[in-house]
Simulated assay, not measured.
Amino acid sequence: MPDGETPRGAVDLRLLTRDEPPPFTVLNASGAAPLVITCDHASNRVPEALGDLGLNRAELARHIAWDIGAAEVTRRLASLLDAPAVLSHFSRLVIDPNRRVDVPASIPPISDGTEVPGNRHLSDREIRQRREQLFAPYHAACERMIEAKIAGGIRPALIFLHSFTPVFAGEERWMEAAILWDRDDRLPRPLLEGLRARGIATGDNEPYSGRSTEDYSLHAHGDARGLPHVLIELRQDVIDTKAGAERWAETLAEILRPLLTDPATFRSP
């Protein structure tokens, strides 16, 4: 076998080439706000080594691959609030940053009725590649940003920003926004009140729940540290344009600014 050639059937240990971007993007790292924003499903990018996972371009543009509009809202919100943000740089179809790695939805073989051929019959090594080279570095970046705030004497609030489809399984969703949380209501309650006071139809732990035992980020970064936190979901059709994302980022910033200066937000839970 010629030098440097990979044996047939072997798996290259490096998932990302040197020319590819890292599995996360950090924005406004020195932002002064007592806040860290994360966007788990910011990108629909698939590493070159995995091709297209057996999907066409149209499928990879759908919500199954990423949270449409969420990245743009995250970028703008981070700027408006002068807060650091960490965004994923790989598709949730490759490995989902917001699912525990021991559940089937972590690397879904099927998503919203669409089969994902590139996720079937994976070896332990292939699964480990995705966990160690994508999932783990992204969450390590989130942890570093949180630790940097704490090292500077600030126990930050955490916002996990997501989006959801207007229609799912043939049912129209009535809410424009949703607030997901588990036990800690320091941010969720006033945020719900602020959105509803503006006439915005807002779900409280629907259409998804912050109490899901399969989800990862809210529990690993928020609950585990005792930091005030909330997962915000926005309906994709209200943020899928630049103007819509801007408008929603401004609305969230308007509600969040007084909460970030209110001692009640940072009281012991």
Rank of each mutant, 00 (worst) to 15 (best):
residue 261 T to I: 06
residue 265 T to V: 09
residue 240 D to M: 05
residue 69 G to R: 09
residue 269 P to Y: 12
residue 187 L to H: 02
residue 82 D to G: 09
residue 219 H to C: 02
residue 101 V to D: 14
residue 82 D to C: 05
residue 4 G to V: 02
residue 84 P to Y: 15
residue 228 P to L: 04
residue 110 I to P: 01
residue 163 S to N: 06
residue 41 H to V: 06
residue 259 L to N: 05
residue 12 D to I: 12
residue 249 A to E: 03
residue 86 V to W: 12
residue 136 A to D: 12
residue 95 I to G: 09
residue 64 I to P: 00
residue 184 D to Q: 02
residue 117 P to Y: 10
residue 238 V to S: 12
residue 159 I to T: 03
residue 221 H to A: 03
residue 55 L to D: 05
residue 186 R to S: 04
residue 212 S to Y: 09
residue 62 R to Y: 13
residue 138 Y to D: 04
residue 23 P to Q: 10
residue 187 L to R: 00
residue 141 A to E: 13
residue 119 N to T: 09
residue 158 L to F: 05
residue 115 E to F: 04
residue 85 A to F: 14
residue 113 G to T: 01
residue 8 R to C: 05
residue 92 R to D: 00
residue 128 R to V: 04
residue 4 G to N: 08
residue 185 D to E: 14
residue 266 F to I: 03
residue 134 L to Q: 02
residue 107 I to G: 03
residue 215 D to T: 14
residue 188 P to S: 08
residue 44 N to W: 04
residue 68 I to T: 07
residue 203 G to F: 10
residue 60 L to V: 00
residue 246 E to F: 11
residue 139 H to Y: 06
residue 13 L to C: 10
residue 261 T to S: 14
residue 249 A to M: 00
residue 269 P to R: 14
residue 207 P to S: 08
residue 29 A to W: 06
residue 227 L to Y: 12
residue 25 T to I: 07
residue 247 R to L: 08
residue 242 K to A: 15
residue 30 S to Y: 11
residue 5 E to W: 13
residue 89 H to L: 07
residue 116 V to F: 06
residue 259 L to D: 07
residue 98 N to S: 04
residue 15 L to D: 06
residue 79 S to E: 15
residue 183 R to C: 07
residue 59 E to S: 15
residue 244 G to I: 01
residue 204 D to N: 09
residue 48 E to W: 10
residue 65 A to C: 05
residue 48 E to Y: 11
residue 92 R to G: 00
residue 37 I to W: 13
residue 137 P to N: 13
residue 20 E to V: 01
residue 22 P to E: 12
residue 31 G to H: 14
residue 128 R to W: 13
residue 93 L to V: 02
residue 34 P to M: 13
residue 118 G to D: 09
residue 262 D to W: 11
residue 165 T to D: 07
residue 59 E to D: 15
residue 193 E to W: 08
residue 132 E to F: 10
residue 153 G to D: 07
residue 166 P to Q: 08
residue 95 I to W: 08
residue 259 L to G: 10
residue 143 E to C: 02
residue 176 E to A: 13
residue 139 H to W: 07
residue 149 K to A: 02
residue 204 D to H: 13
residue 156 P to D: 08
residue 2 P to I: 04
residue 51 G to K: 07
residue 159 I to L: 13
residue 199 G to V: 02
residue 14 R to T: 12
residue 67 D to M: 00
residue 215 D to Y: 09
residue 129 Q to G: 03
residue 65 A to M: 06
residue 113 G to E: 04
residue 51 G to T: 06
residue 36 V to S: 02
residue 244 G to F: 13
residue 170 G to E: 03
residue 88 S to G: 08
residue 7 P to H: 10
residue 200 I to P: 00
residue 15 L to N: 08
residue 145 M to S: 13
residue 10 A to G: 02
residue 190 P to Y: 09
residue 100 R to H: 11
residue 183 R to M: 10
residue 204 D to I: 03
residue 208 Y to L: 04
residue 147 E to T: 11
residue 264 A to Y: 15
residue 242 K to L: 11
residue 241 T to E: 05
residue 43 S to I: 05
residue 163 S to H: 09
residue 185 D to S: 11
residue 162 H to A: 02
residue 267 R to V: 04
residue 35 L to Q: 05
residue 131 R to F: 14
residue 194 G to I: 01
residue 268 S to K: 14
